[in-house]
Nucleic acid binder design. Structure first.
Lengths: 241, 241
DNA sequence: TGAAACCACGTACGACGTACCCAGTTTCTA
DNA sequence: TAGAAACTGGGTACGTCGTACGTGGTTTCA
């Protein structure tokens, strides 16, 4: 891996030389396991290498940089945005909703992926696959192709933004190494001083009545998603589904 | 700055000792300037220190870690989510829309902030201020407090997700150090091979008709935002404004 | 007039990504 | 069948990072 070529356009097996000791698939699998358990910054080339049982620099035979490892990880996870048994009903709204729910569930299983995929739009096999599937869901609805792209992009923006926020607190705990109790102990005095100032009545209400009729995170996700789909449906050229 | 206390609860000026050579405000300002111009990874404690004209370790008198610097940067930028001359018309929909547009514009001016603020939900002065302002926009609409929180969270999730995606390509260029031409040269052959496979007809269409009736990014943002607000408006307990 | 509380900052440590190099292995070619 | 070509694994080393720690100077209070 000497640098410039595209990560996704390499032959599986080189023509000459000894057979490789491992594979990019193995590398990806190990990296995902570490990131799931300990977060993205637990991933270093040295750590990956020892976990695989190889020398650090050997990884660079399979990948031209750490960035490539990240790309491999993203692509692998994106593969199950749509589970293999997902069916397209032909009802665009149900299909798109199922897709969004699947994306969220996958992102919750791999908490490091949402921030990455939100900020990296490089094409990769599974991202291409998912984009194609999503576009097929809104085909034949009387929209222009760019309108279809806009709709898909809108839904995905919402899902990504929501899940990032959803994971933010857990990530803060991981980043600081604190447990929930310690973290609260740090934030509460400040919030109390905010409330005491009297300048932020709504935030004050949040701290007092916020816990009252608690709304489940999944329900909040569904609410926003359904409102978005409502709004889109109302603007469709002709009512289909 | 010895570690555990909350960043936002320190006295402005210590009681004893010589007067500080600079300030957290100065530190924040320099950090934001660097990040705006060269991206977030251009920020290192050494770089900040030399730019300020101080010793590297002196920064730790003002801040207990690099993470605190990041928090200061975020809070400073969040301050102009709502420009100082922004008016609350009393029309919840117009106000919320103006807020969302303001957030996007601020995020575009500071391309590093969207990914950070999406994944960090720690309270800070300006974040609290913005949250309070947003909640006031949807007050008196007959919703419970948690419903209000859900609505605000939904809009913000969309804005954040959209802007992250919007900035993704530019960020990829910065990350790799390539210019647009070089980057295209790298992606195009792969995309051509994808199209040639015949398995992804929609992506193929994207490459051929995608550029035809080009939709402005701002218009796409507005579209999603307006559909979301449509959907929310339709579910409001009673029609007010 | 100490002593306490603060300040600036040099040195040093462990971790990181990766450029470069060399020796060994497989396969194609003559 | 010899040897060149194309690959392999991986050790060493460089520059960068965040920051723990300590030393010595300055200001303010008791």
């Amino acid at each position: 891996m000497t640098g410039r070529e595209n990560l996704w356009m390499r032959p599986d097996r080189p023509a000459r030389g000894p057979r490789p000791a491992f594979s990019r698939a193995r590398l990806t699998e190990v990296a995902i396991r570490i990131a799931d358990a300990e977060g993205l910054d637990a991933i270093s080339m040295r750590r990956l290498a020892t976990e695989i049982g190889a020398g650090t620099m050997s990884l660079y035979r399979y990948v031209s940089s750490k960035d490539d490892v990240i790309e491999l990880m993203i692509d692998a996870v994106v593969a199950d945005y749509l589970p293999p048994d997902a069916v397209m009903t032909g009802d665009w709204r149900a299909d798109l909703r199922g897709f969004a729910v699947g994306v969220r569930q996958t992102m919750l299983r791999h908490p490091w992926v949402a921030p990455l995929v939100g900020t990296r739009q490089q094409p990769s096999p599974n991202r291409v696959r998912m984009l194609d599937a999503a576009l097929r869901m809104v085909d034949d609805l009387g929209m222009s192709f760019n309108e279809m792209l806009t709709v898909i992009g809108t839904v995905f923006a919402y899902v990504n933004g929501f899940v990032e926020a959803e994971l933010a607190e857990a990530e803060a705990l991981r980043r600081t190494g604190l447990d929930l109790m310690e973290w609260m102990t740090l934030q509460v005095p400040y919030l109390q001083s905010v409330v005491a100032s009297g300048s932020y009545p709504m935030v004050a209400r949040m701290l007092t009545e916020g816990g009252q009729d608690y709304v489940d995170v999944g329900d909040r996700f569904d609410f926003g998603l359904d409102r978005l789909l409502d709004g889109i449906a109302a603007r469709l050229p002709h009512a289909s589904g």
